[in-house]
Design a protein around this nucleic acid. Sequence first.
DNA 1: TCGCCCGTTCCACTGAGCGGCACGGTGTGC
DNA 2: GCACACCGTGCCGCTCAGTGGAACGGGCGA
Lengths: 251, 251
Amino acid sequence: MEVRSVTRALQILEAVAQHQPVTVGELSKLLGLPKSTVQRTLLTLNEAGWLRANRKDTTRWDIGARVLAVRPAALQGSSLFAAAREPMIRLRDTLNETIHLSVPDGLQGAVIVDRVDCTHALRIVFAIGDISPLHATASGRAILAHLPTADVDEVVSRGLERFSDATPTDPVQLRADLERVRADGFSVNRNQYRPGVCAVAAPILDVDGTPIATITVSMPDSRYDEDKAPDWGRLVADTAAEITGRRQLGA
Amino acid sequence: MEVRSVTRALQILEAVAQHQPVTVGELSKLLGLPKSTVQRTLLTLNEAGWLRANRKDTTRWDIGARVLAVRPAALQGSSLFAAAREPMIRLRDTLNETIHLSVPDGLQGAVIVDRVDCTHALRIVFAIGDISPLHATASGRAILAHLPTADVDEVVSRGLERFSDATPTDPVQLRADLERVRADGFSVNRNQYRPGVCAVAAPILDVDGTPIATITVSMPDSRYDEDKAPDWGRLVADTAAEITGRRQLGA
DNA sequence: TCGCCCGTTCCACTGAGCGGCACGGTGTGC
DNA sequence: GCACACCGTGCCGCTCAGTGGAACGGGCGA
């Protein structure tokens, strides 16, 4: 939090993204900031092209298209979203569980960038933009398993935070699991991050083998079945492979 | 330019996006700002998750994954992407020319959000995120033709910038063309924006008739054939109509 | 070994940003 | 039809957050 106005501007931008189209007053209440401050910031973001007044109600604000030009290098010129969306929906239809698309954010974790929900009353809900640690989740380890050993060392040296009783906090245990993920082609998480939440994930790789995203199917522990995990793993891995293929097709 | 630090932070963010991975000094020279100011802003953006230190060289900066959570409303839920992807590929296979999916950005222009390339050695290449003016391109006029007259007036009053000899800078000429686009169901651009680049486009409409996107086929002038334009137009319009239908089905 | 240039840190100054307040318009409930 | 509540917008004096010049330390090449 170095430059206050910048930090706030980004908060406002993210709030607009989540609630668009949204008004000054709504944002003001949502973020607990004075109306005039929010207004001034909105005008600034608008002038920079990051926001647009909604065309049907000009007192409401939408995210502008400028943001699309700003993407992580790994995704420059690629169409990850477009390639992933349809296979994700098909996977959801097959399993009827929540499907997430995540991308690595340095070694900080994996960020959820897209989501397809299931129809169960009891379902897993993570928000787009949520970030989760690499060692404690299925999507994280699907990424970690395809990174150089030096990166794994780095993650280990930063400390393996414990989130639940099942979190793998032992480096030896973690490395063994990563070995297995490489062999299987998918990773599994049973209550290791959020208690009661299980997941199976597979990586989407770039042409040079670096992981650029993962597909994850998440479900409550009550619907997780150890015997079915290999089948789910194969389905998720196939979906990830299909997206990898589509990406190269369209590029 | 209301809040200076925010404006600069966004400039820096965009500069990082274009030159990543980039150092403090490079940015400082590039933008003509003091090193300390750039550094402070970079740290702020980093803390907010919008930037990440490059993994191979920690003094260089990359765009962080957080930005992916911020998207224009038209792309929220990605039903547009999913609906458009397959028809776009089919259209590319039929014509073997570059296909673009664009969305309007207020009245500022149309932004390319997805792309399917052709196989020709000589081909049109625009990047995802590129923005082009509404009056000077096929995709722009496909949008403009389905906006209220007040919006067209607004665009005209902002001035019709000339990009080439063929750019329609006369309001009367523009309005006549829009009339024709409505009648034909597709728009045509022959060297009106980038010399040597021709295109045919059709709009994707929302249930209430407002244009939310366009499908465009772009080709070099050397492959453009006036006689075939109507056929191409019909193909593009059919593709756009199919996407419109899929969107309503899948939503 | 020396010198250059890099990223980083510090700190005193000041004007940019802050936010309380007031205005005009809109719609809602008596 | 009136009054009130609430909206988005604009203003302006105060203050401290942001600025940027300068200095530091380390890496690298000559």
